Measured scan of single mutants.
Amino acid sequence: NNDALSPAIRRLLAEHNLDASAIKGTGVGGRLTREDVEKWLAKA
């Protein structure tokens, strides 16, 4: 759900042209964290 994304995470996803639904969030309530996105980028 994009409503649950912080502005910083939205920007990070946009910079790398990523789809938030492709990344499993580990934050509160399954929210994406910066670490989630960075780990996903490291694997890609």
Results as ranks from 00 to 15, higher is better:
Gly30Val: 02
Leu13Met: 05
Arg11Leu: 15
Asn2Asp: 14
Ser21Ala: 12
Ala4Val: 12
Asp19Met: 07
Asp19Trp: 05
Asn2Ser: 13
Ile23Gln: 02
Ala22Met: 15
Ala8Asp: 15
Leu18Gly: 05
Gly25Trp: 02
Lys43Leu: 14
Ala20Val: 10
Asp36Leu: 02
Leu12Trp: 11
Leu13Glu: 00
Trp40Asp: 01
Asn1Glu: 14
Ala14Ile: 07
Gly30Arg: 03
Lys39Trp: 11
Lys24Glu: 12
Gly29Asn: 11
Arg10Lys: 13
Thr26Gly: 03
Ala44Asp: 10
Asn2Met: 13
Glu15Phe: 14
Ser6Phe: 04
Asp3Lys: 07
Asp19Gln: 09
Leu32Tyr: 02
Asn1Ile: 13
Arg10Thr: 09
Gly30Phe: 02
Gly27Arg: 00
Leu13Cys: 02
Leu32Ser: 00
Ile9Gln: 03
Asn1Val: 13
Ala14Phe: 09
Asn2Ile: 14
Leu5Pro: 05
Leu41Met: 06
Leu13Gln: 00
Thr33Ala: 01
Leu18Arg: 01
Asn1Met: 13
Pro7Glu: 15
Ser6Pro: 12
Thr26Trp: 03
Ala42Tyr: 08
Ala42Ser: 11
Leu13Arg: 00
Ser21Thr: 12
Gly30Pro: 01
Gly27Asn: 02
Asp36Asn: 01
Leu18Met: 06
Ile23Arg: 01
Ala20Met: 06
Ala4His: 14
His16Ser: 04
Asn1Arg: 03
Ala8Met: 07
Ile9Lys: 00
Leu12Phe: 08
Glu38Ser: 06
Arg10Pro: 01
Arg31Asp: 06
Ala22Gly: 06
Ser6Ile: 05
Asn1Phe: 09
Val37Arg: 00
Gly25Thr: 04
Pro7Gly: 08
Lys39Leu: 14
Arg10Asp: 13
Arg31His: 09
Asp36Tyr: 01
Ala20Thr: 06
Leu12His: 07
Gly29Ile: 03
Asn1Leu: 13
Ala20Tyr: 06
Ser21Asn: 13
Gly29Tyr: 05
Trp40Val: 12
Pro7Gln: 12
Pro7Phe: 05
Asn17Ile: 04
Gly25Ser: 03
Val28Phe: 09
Arg31Pro: 03
Leu5Trp: 06
Leu18Lys: 03
Gly25Asp: 02
Trp40Ser: 07
Ile9Tyr: 04
Arg11His: 15
Glu38Pro: 00
Lys43Met: 14
Lys43Phe: 13
Leu32Phe: 04
Gly29Arg: 05
Ser21Glu: 09
Lys43Gly: 13
Ala8Ser: 11
Ala44Trp: 15
Lys24Ile: 14
Ala20Trp: 07
Leu41His: 10
